[in-house]
Design a protein around this nucleic acid. Structure first.
Lengths: 133, 133
DNA sequence: ACCTTGCTTGACGTTCGCGTAAGCCAAACG
DNA sequence: CGTTTGGCTTACGCGAACGTCAAGCAAGGT
């Protein structure tokens, strides 16, 4: 059931915790390309992979437009050389961004850890005080 | 000049590459608390530290409201023990989130790297072809 | 035959994060 | 003295990313 079958909009919503509106919106923005059975949308394995990347991208603060361009990267069919080259450059910059973002995230994690240690000490102190009374 | 002095709005803008509007907006949202000299704003060392965290938070897709709560974390003055404990728990969860986010980021970076290698090969092929004609 | 359930397409509404004037001080400069 | 410079408030505007009706079709149950 998991691989080559298509999913209805509701199955998608339940699986990925998004609303129908969101999926239709993503289709309108050409982020997803569900096939049509009559009037209804059927989401393929490809759509699901793309949706996962979309949701991940959002968590890192990318706009939908930026995500769309990144998705095209993972989906180079028969592009022109010039187009492919542009896409390639774009991706390299994105990669730099992400590596830089990773460094920042490490810092942020360290900062927060220190705050936590500090907080733990304060809590201990307060606890010792209240026990002494 | 760097530590205990205050900065005007323009100095802040130049230093952190934001607009005046943005700084006033952050003040309105209670993310910053510049002191007033007459009608003008003077940004302290504390404001600058907070602004750095704000900008960093934005890069990770946090909303300003989420960032405000995180900032309060770094700003525990003389809180009650219960309040401090709550803050402490909140911080631990945030830390978990960030660690998880880092794992995801690592994955994303790996994915993108692979895509880039693939793209480089394709570009080479295309180049070889056009040279052969 | 009817009604519910699930999906559809508009189309307007909303929140967030600012941008962008408009108009008003006040210090500083020529 | 006028005027540029820099900051202020008030307020309307805007794009992004959906939410929220409204109205309609289509398949399936009773």
């Amino acid at each position: 059931m998991s691989d080559d079958t298509t999913m209805t909009i509701r199955q998608m919503c339940d699986t990925y915790d998004v609303t129908p509106r969101t999926l239709r919106f993503y289709e309108a923005k050409e982020l997803l390309f569900p096939i049509r059975q009559g009037t209804k949308r059927l989401f393929t394995r490809r759509d699901r992979a793309r949706l996962k990347l979309i949701l991940r991208g959002k968590r890192f603060g990318f706009s939908l437009e930026e995500i769309r361009q990144l998705l095209d990267l993972y989906d180079v069919g028969d592009q022109q050389a010039t187009q492919l080259a542009k896409t390639y450059e774009l991706a390299k910059h994105r990669l730099d961004d992400m590596v830089h973002q990773r460094e920042e995230l490490d810092e942020a994690i360290d900062d927060l850890k220190k705050q936590l240690e500090w907080g733990a000490k304060r809590l201990e102190e307060l606890h010792a005080k209240s026990a002494a009374e």
